[in-house]
Simulated scan of single mutants.
Amino acid sequence: MPHDVDVTLPSYPTLTSLPATDHPDLVAAPVAAALAAWPGAAEVAVVDIDPDLADTAAMSEAYDIPMTAGGNCVVVSGARAGDERIAACVVRADTRADVNTLVRKLLDVRKCSFLPMDRAVEETGMEYGGITPLGLPTGWRILVHDALLDEPVVVLGSGVRRSKLLVPGRLLADLPGAEVVAGLGR
């Protein structure tokens, strides 16, 4: 979207929305690179938050944001015939990813588990508690809970704990590599 076109940034009254593409200093480096390359980024805001309130429930309470507007990103993995399969699952914060049934079947693995924290942090280049579907390693699947698409504004991690991204829910289907999955969150 050209810079001369006015775009209303997603917002919440308790937070100050800034254009995410203009503030790469507020997000992790891989997130900044992904935003710079993604056409939908013109409609994405970044907001500064207290890093001690980065966990979804604490942030929702402190900033008066409904849990249905939160998008939690968890990274899972499994293997089949020695081939590791990794996926980032983005689910509405009032649900949990259906890892043991739905995600396991989507990845076509016998067993699916959460990627160890140290490995997730190292491979994403993001802080634990700030991992987001933007800027993930090439080859990782991105599974998006269909219920998030109906939210006017979804609050996602920014790759760091001191800020969050505000994204119109409909744009989550347009994230590079995103697969919208019905019932991903239960």
Rank of each mutant, 00 (worst) to 15 (best):
P51D: 10
D48G: 07
F114G: 11
G129I: 07
P116R: 01
A20F: 05
L35I: 13
D83Y: 03
S60P: 07
R104K: 05
V160S: 12
C89L: 08
L156C: 12
V74M: 12
A79P: 01
H145D: 15
V181C: 05
V167E: 02
L156Y: 04
M67F: 03
A37C: 11
D150A: 11
A32G: 13
G78T: 03
Y63D: 05
D98A: 09
D98K: 10
S60E: 15
G185Y: 04
G130P: 00
S77V: 00
G185M: 05
P66L: 07
R119F: 11
R85D: 06
G185H: 03
A120N: 04
P39Q: 03
A57S: 14
S158A: 10
A57P: 14
S60Q: 11
W140G: 06
A147W: 03
R85N: 09
G169A: 06
H145S: 14
A88I: 09
G177I: 04
A34E: 02
P51C: 07
G40W: 06
G159A: 10
T138G: 09
V44M: 01
G125Q: 08
V180G: 05
K111N: 12
D22Q: 10
I49E: 06
L172K: 00
V47R: 08
D108V: 00
Y128A: 04
T138D: 15
A36N: 04
E122S: 13
A97L: 11
P13H: 13
T68R: 06
D64H: 11
P2I: 13
A182Y: 08
D94W: 08
R170D: 04
C89N: 04
A20D: 05
K111Y: 12
C73W: 00
D55V: 01
R186K: 15
D4M: 09
P116D: 06
A33W: 11
M117E: 15
D22L: 10
P19V: 11
P116E: 04
G125A: 05
G82F: 04
L9R: 00
V44P: 00
L18F: 12
V91R: 08
S163E: 14
D25N: 08
R110Y: 09
Y128E: 06
W38Y: 13
S60K: 03
W38D: 10
V31K: 09
L107W: 00
R162C: 09
M67L: 13
V144T: 09
L106T: 07
A69W: 00
E123C: 07
D55L: 04
P176C: 08
V75D: 01
E179D: 15
A41E: 08
T16P: 08
D174K: 13
E151I: 02
G135K: 04
N72A: 02
E179Y: 11
L166Q: 03
E179H: 15
